[in-house]
Design a protein around this nucleic acid. Structure first.
Lengths: 144, 144
DNA sequence: GGACAGTACATGCACATGCATTCAATGCAA
DNA sequence: TTGCATTGAATGCATGTGCATGTACTGTCC
């Protein structure tokens, strides 16, 4: 039996599996629910939320893409395409940064803010369901 | 300010972001390290591990694919293709189940067991790094 | 000014994933 | 036995992701 060499190792693996299960359950349900009802993926919502936070309540404040990359767990290329999707959907606007013309400034549109506000309750409900109580079966294993 | 309506909501979101960060850090490093050194993805290793556990120490005990789906957080189709990759790599063997010929029995090959045993220390090291201590920047945001 | 390294973002490409569908096999009912 | 719903797994397809690269721009050194 090679898998029970040390108790510390077993605990670490148990912790990892618990994390995997919770993440899978939450991520899958978020993707499905937000996608069905609001046309947003989990990461799309996450980016919108960061934009709302960083832009503050006042509209029009712009955010650099490079700043987002530090908070959203996506590669730079994935983030670039995600923003392209959001822009295509009319939820954000891309504009050239004047002070550093390599950079891109993101502005949340009114539609983007509304979409976020509409989706937020569902997002929180899913988190309550999947993080609050004992975890259920994850997404992938229930499909088929 | 719409994002601080209730303290419970804020706590839930904080918990979710913590989970996202830990998962991203661990999953990314696992994929990268296991991929570079052993040609295994995170999920491939996970499946091998379940096979080792379910087959027990003795070789040759077979495991149904349908049973794996409940423990690995993948869709049925993804699991099917993952198993195909493992079989192509010579790490598992697919055989028809005699009692229910719809089912597929998986057998860990000697190479599969060896690969798992070789990869396990690295897997545990990554878990220690990413789960044990305070989380660092996640994978995606550090690439580029 | 010109050359060159570094940064910010976009894009080509390969690949893993999920959904819907398909195929094979089982269980049940008539 | 035939007919039908169900289950286990494989496959077509669209999509999201990361890596490597390309493009545009900045800053530095000469």
């Amino acid at each position: 039996m090679a898998e029970l060499d040390s108790p510390a190792e077993a605990g670490l693996v148990a912790q990892w599996r618990e994390l995997l299960a919770r993440h899978a359950a939450a991520a899958c349900m978020l993707d499905r629910e937000l996608g069905e009802r609001f046309g947003l993926g989990m990461s799309e919502f996450e980016v919108l939320e960061r934009l709302v936070e960083d832009c503050g309540g006042g509209g029009g404040q712009a955010v650099r893409v490079s700043g987002l990359a530090h908070t959203v767990h996506l590669s730079q290329s994935a983030l670039s395409r995600l923003i392209a999707r959001l822009e295509k959907a009319g939820l954000v606007t891309r504009a050239m940064c004047e002070s550093d013309r390599r950079g891109v400034l993101l502005t949340l549109t009114e539609a983007g803010r509304e979409r976020y506000e509409q989706a937020r309750p569902l997002h929180r409900q899913v988190l309550e369901l999947t993080l609050g109580e004992g975890l259920g079966p994850a997404c992938g294993s229930t499909s088929g």
